[in-house]
Structure formats: structure tokens, C-alpha cells
């Protein structure tokens, strides 16, 4: 509800304030990303695929398939949620503005958005997740996939 109010205000003043629109979009992204639904979505994706990735320079073709699936799932989810809050929102257009304002931005949101368009950022995110998992589960040494009992907030998207 709160978000809807902001959106109305913006609709009135959009033409004279690109800045407030930008801030509003970032705020909306932060809200969505902190929401449990998004975190579950992203974590279950990482959980499903992190074991496919190795920290080697050469990439396997399957990484590209996994990246495409990620974009279709996570970017689409984010885009749809943003559309609910901001009619006619366009993520690619917003990404362009974002690159210009890189320095004003919270690094984690910027990194997250880059994972959609930049394969290497995506790969890094998976490898970070993998390193974290393997660090955490080293004592168990008992199988291929280890599912944690509790849902712990991921560092990237806290």
C-alpha cells in the first residue's frame, strides 16, 4: 500500500524528476529482493545448480543454458513484480540508467542486476555460493547435494 502511494506521487511529477523515479525504482527493487519469496526463488536456483560449476577459466556450454534459465526465471520474476508496482517499467532501459549511476548505488543491488546481463557476474555469484556451501558443509562430506535445514539469509541479497 505504501508503495502504491509513492507510485501515484511519482506519476504526477515524473517529467520533472528523473532522479526521484530512479530512487523509487531502486527502492522497489530493494523491497522485492528482501522479500522472502524472492530469496527462496533465488536460493533454490543456486542450490539446484551450484554443483555444476567449477572455478576454472574455461566454461562449459551447460553454464550458458543455466544462465538462460536463471534469466528466464529470476529476471522475469523481478520484472513482473516491478511491473505490478510501476506500470510500463522496462528493466533494460533501467539498466542503462543504472550503469550511468553506478557510483551512487548500493553494490549488492547493482551486482544482482548485472547477473542477468553479464555472464561472468552470474558465474561469480554461483561460485561464491558454492564456496560458501562447501565451506559450511565440509564436515558432513556425505553426498552430492546437501540441503540446509533452516533457510539462512544469503549474504548477497540480505
Amino acid at each position: 500500500m505504501e508503495v502504491d502511494d509513492r507510485e501515484e506521487n511519482l506519476a504526477v511529477s515524473r517529467s520533472n524528476s528523473a532522479d526521484s523515479r530512479f530512487d523509487m525504482v531502486i527502492g522497489a527493487i530493494e523491497d522485492i529482493v528482501m522479500d522472502e519469496e524472492f530469496q527462496v526463488l533465488q536460493n533454490s536456483f543456486l542450490e539446484k545448480y551450484f554443483h555444476e560449476f567449477d572455478d576454472s577459466e574455461e566454461n562449459r556450454f551447460i553454464y550458458t543454458d543455466i544462465h538462460t534459465e536463471y534469466v528466464n526465471l529470476v529476471e522475469k520474476y523481478l520484472n513482473n513484480r516491478l511491473l505490478e508496482k510501476i506500470p510500463q517499467f522496462s528493466l533494460p532501459e533501467f539498466m542503462n540508467q543504472m550503469i550511468n549511476r553506478k557510483n551512487e548505488l548500493d553494490g549488492e543491488i547493482f551486482e544482482l542486476l548485472l547477473t542477468f546481463s553479464d555472464f561472468l557476474t552470474f558465474k561469480e555469484m554461483i561460485l561464491d555460493y558454492k564456496a560458501e556451501k562447501e565451506g559450511r558443509t565440509v564436515d558432513l562430506s556425505c553426498g552430492f547435494t546437501v540441503t540446509p535445514l533452516g533457510t539462512r539469509d544469503k549474504k548477497e541479497i540480505k
Binding site: 577459466e57 574455461e58 562449459r60 556450454f61 553454464y63 550458458t64 555472464f119 561472468l120
Partner: peptide, 9 residues
């Protein structure tokens, strides 16, 4: 021999 792909930025 490359069996997948490499990327350099």
C-alpha cells in the same frame, strides 16, 4: 583444445 568457451573482459 577448448571444449566449451572462454571469455575475457
Amino acid at each position: 583444445p577448448t571444449l566449451g568457451f572462454n571469455i575475457k573482459t
